[in-house]
Simulated scan of single mutants.
Amino acid sequence: MREFNNKSNKKIYQIVVFIVIAIMILGLVADNPRMGDFGAGYILNLVLVLILSVCLPQG
């Protein structure tokens, strides 16, 4: 029974991580006033989203 519970928890975790990554990416591209201006703030935000996207699925 523990195996099933762990697989279920892992599946829920992966779904939540996917949703969080999708929301972060959506925040960068959807109606962003700084989309055309690739300043330091936008690039930093893009780098942080990429770093979190790589680090989160490791669970």
Rank of each mutant, 00 (worst) to 15 (best):
Y42V: 05
N32K: 04
I51Y: 02
F38S: 01
S53R: 03
F4A: 15
G59S: 09
Y42A: 06
L50S: 08
N9D: 14
A30W: 15
M1V: 12
N6S: 11
Q14N: 15
G39P: 01
V17E: 01
M35L: 15
L44D: 06
V29M: 06
I25W: 05
N9V: 10
N5K: 15
I51S: 02
D37T: 08
L52V: 02
P57R: 04
V29I: 14
K10D: 12
C55Q: 09
Y13V: 04
V29S: 05
Y42R: 07
N9T: 12
Q14R: 11
I21Y: 01
L56P: 05
N6K: 15
V54R: 04
F18I: 01
P57H: 04
A40T: 13
F4C: 08
V49G: 01
S8Q: 11
L26H: 07
Q14H: 10
M35N: 08
F38L: 09
Y42D: 04
Y42I: 03
G59A: 13
I12C: 06
V17P: 03
A30R: 10
P33V: 03
N32P: 04
S8V: 08
L44H: 01
I12P: 01
N5C: 09
E3L: 14
L48W: 04
N45I: 00
A22K: 02
M35T: 00
Y42P: 00
I12N: 13
V17H: 02
N9L: 13
V54Y: 08
I21N: 05
R34P: 00
E3S: 11
V47A: 06
V20E: 03
Q14C: 10
I23P: 00
D37Q: 08
N45E: 09
V17L: 03
I15Q: 13
V29C: 07
F38A: 05
N9A: 15
G59T: 08
Q14G: 05
V17R: 04
N5T: 14
L26M: 11
V20C: 05
A22L: 09
A22W: 02
I12D: 14
L48H: 00
E3C: 06
I15D: 11
G39C: 01
L44A: 12
V47N: 00
P57L: 02
G27R: 06
V49R: 02
V54W: 09
L48M: 08
F18A: 12
